[in-house]
Write a protein that binds this DNA or RNA. Structure first.
Lengths: 142, 142
DNA sequence: GCAAAACCTACACCAACTGTATCTTTTTCC
DNA sequence: GGAAAAAGATACAGTTGGTGTAGGTTTTGC
């Protein structure tokens, strides 16, 4: 029987986060002691590890919910899990492409800054004047 | 004299977002008509363009606040703006490195999935078993 | 048996918006 | 000029994925 603190250490998840996962229905309600404290078993430890690992791979909580559901039904065809992973891969590649463009632009800004007054600072100039922009970057957030 | 809708179209910013920027003090309070509607001038259009362009480059609203402040004081030395851009560049490079690792892992997952039952789905297996993991990916969020 | 550590609930807060409801102003068209 | 439609106003809730805090209870270790 594991306390929430032990689970927290074993999975690298904050205690509050575990309670949060329970609240949103991602983790099942665990058993309680007489005094009302949560106690977990190994199945729950595995489930939380699965969740954390998936989060580290960039899956959204919704995607993880789907994956857990698939994992709970071993007789269903596998292509759904594969599709989720493929979707995720596509997203990651899109993000990388966008970041690559931003990196180019930022490098240019930094290299052109000669260290004078802000009045003729290239960094600010580039930000002020969109037409200086070499790349198309119309999506926000990374 | 520009309406908020015109400003919205010209900068590709949602109307609500413009009002939100005003609320958090990033945009100044504009003039109003008799009836209470906002009216903007070109200076404000430029400022909003600056904000949007900076957001597209991944700067946080806090960083943009600093940059706007620098931009408002042309006699200050430029190295602060340069430092902000360098910080941003470093962040972008870190994100790219992390995404690169995730991409490798996801590719591996997708390629190994043979399309059988979820019981022996490689995608789920990888997520279940952290020890299969080729990369170190302990930071979350991208 | 008592202090300290770990736990409990409940709620507020973070970024950076977006969406909704309800109402008023402005524009457009006949 | 007057009706209808488009655009604007405020205020507040919701989004994602958590984190932080306050104030109280339970468990553990010596």
């Amino acid at each position: 029987m594991l306390t929430i603190g032990t689970l927290s250490k074993k999975t690298g998840t904050k205690v509050q986060t575990i309670r949060y996962y329970e609240q949103i229905g991602l983790m099942p309600e665990p058993g309680r002691t007489e005094g009302g404290q949560r106690r977990y078993d190994n199945a729950q430890l595995d489930r939380l590890s699965f969740i954390r690992h998936s989060r580290q791979l960039g899956f959204s909580l919704d995607a993880i919910r789907e994956l857990l559901d698939l994992s709970d039904h071993p007789n269903r065809p596998c292509h759904e899990a594969d599709a989720i992973a493929r979707r995720q891969l596509k997203q990651v590649e899109q993000r990388m492409a966008r970041l690559e463009a931003l990196r180019t632009e930022l490098k240019r800004m930094v290299h052109e800054c000669s260290g004078g007054r802000t009045a003729d600072c290239k960094v600010l100039e580039v930000l002020r004047d969109h037409s200086e922009c070499l790349t198309e970057h119309d999506e926000i957030g990374a």
